[in-house]
Simulated scan of single mutants.
Amino acid sequence: MSPPEGAVTHFALPTEKAAPVGITADDQAVWFVEIGAGQVGRVTPDGEVTEFPLPTAGSEPHGLAVPDDEVWVALETGKVATLRP
């Protein structure tokens, strides 16, 4: 079996041990949660990374959705948070 063709690009995250999971996209970027850092991250096609800390310590964000320019995040604290970047 031959390896897949195409390029793979890695985007380094500024926060050590961010542990990114749960990825989704909008029209301009890709969004993910950082369960290890309690943050929401965003990366643009040109590699610009922005992180948004969540206000609740230990929230452990896991999943997210980005409908209508709002970011909805599921938290292990039994809550759902919204982010309006």
Rank of each mutant, 00 (worst) to 15 (best):
F11P: 02
L83C: 09
A74E: 11
V8D: 08
P53T: 11
M1C: 09
G78Y: 07
G22P: 05
F52V: 05
A65T: 14
W31Y: 03
V43S: 01
A37M: 00
A74Y: 00
H10I: 06
F52G: 04
V8S: 08
A25T: 14
P20W: 00
L64K: 10
G38K: 05
W31G: 01
D69G: 15
G47F: 10
M1S: 13
M1H: 11
T77N: 15
G6R: 10
A25D: 00
E34R: 01
P14I: 06
P53D: 13
P55S: 13
D68R: 12
A7C: 00
G36E: 06
T50H: 08
T15W: 04
Q28F: 09
P45H: 07
K79L: 14
V73H: 09
H10F: 12
V43F: 08
K79E: 15
E16H: 12
L13T: 08
M1L: 12
R42I: 03
V30N: 02
P85R: 15
R42V: 03
E70H: 13
P20E: 01
G38W: 03
V33G: 00
Q39D: 03
P85V: 08
A81P: 05
E51F: 00
S2G: 12
W31Q: 01
R84G: 03
A12N: 08
A19L: 11
T44P: 02
H62Y: 11
E70R: 15
R84D: 13
I35N: 11
A65S: 14
E16V: 14
P4W: 07
V66S: 04
G63W: 08
P4C: 08
T9Y: 07
A74Q: 09
D69V: 01
E60A: 12
A19D: 10
V8F: 12
H10E: 15
V30K: 01
V71W: 04
H62W: 09
P67C: 01
V21Y: 06
A19H: 09
T15R: 14
D69S: 14
V33Y: 01
P45N: 08
T24N: 10
V40W: 02
E51V: 13
G36C: 05
A12M: 02
H62T: 13
A18M: 07
A65C: 10
K79V: 03
E34V: 01
V33E: 01
R42H: 03
R84Y: 06
V66M: 04
T50F: 00
F11E: 01
G78R: 07
V49W: 10
P67M: 03
P67L: 06
Q28H: 14
E70Q: 13
A7L: 07
F52Q: 06
V66Y: 02
G47R: 12
A25W: 00
A81Y: 06
G47A: 11
D46S: 15
P3N: 08
F32Q: 01
G47C: 10
P55V: 04
A18G: 02
A29M: 03
V30D: 01
A18N: 09
H10L: 13
P67K: 05
V66L: 05
E5D: 04
D46K: 14
G22F: 08
V21M: 07
L54K: 13
G58M: 04
T77L: 15
P20D: 02
V33M: 01
E16T: 12
V40S: 04
P61K: 11
E34F: 01
L64H: 10
R84N: 13
V80W: 04
K79Q: 15
V33F: 00
W31L: 03
I35W: 02
F52H: 11
